[in-house]
């Protein structure tokens, strides 16, 4: 299951988190895409959820923090599931690899034109 860090503002996320731990769903992995940006700007400014690791741990989850752009590290973390649900906090950069998109909040909701798409792909494939 993949969650955005901004999405973790929603109460329903934490209802599910509590239930998953209560029922010891050890086959459940939540990957939290922590790019620290949401629609209105940095997550810390819009609604500061502070220490994500501590929060998920307090809800009864196993927690690991990895570089979200390191696919092997994410895959390795997925093998760490024990007797509880596992939260993988994946540190990421929004728009990674595209110079004009990296860490720009507007790209949360941006529309990609053919021209922008071509520019972005050229950078990614360079």
């Amino acid at each position: 299951m993949i969650l955005g860090d901004g999405e973790c503002d929603e109460g329903s996320v934490w209802e599910a988190a509590a239930a998953a731990a209560h029922y010891r769903l050890n086959n459940l992995i939540a990957i939290i895409d922590q790019n620290q940006l949401q629609y209105d700007g940095p997550t810390a400014q819009v609604l500061d959820l502070s220490d994500m690791t501590a929060k998920w741990r307090a809800f009864g989850w196993e927690v690991m923090s990895v570089d979200g752009h390191d696919v092997e590290a994410v895959a390795a973390a997925c093998d760490k599931c024990g007797d509880r649900p596992l939260a993988i906090i994946a540190q990421t950069i929004k728009g990674k690899g595209v110079s004009f998109m990296e860490n720009v909040p507007a790209w949360h909701h941006g529309m990609v034109t053919q021209k922008i798409y071509d520019q972005a792909m050229a950078e990614l494939e360079a």
Binding site: G6, E7, D9, E10, G11, Q38, Y39, D40, V46, L47
Partner: peptide, 9 residues
């Protein structure tokens, strides 16, 4: 007041 992505709240 921006409450974050938390419409019910």
């Amino acid at each position: 007041y921006n409450v974050g992505i938390a419409e019910q709240n």
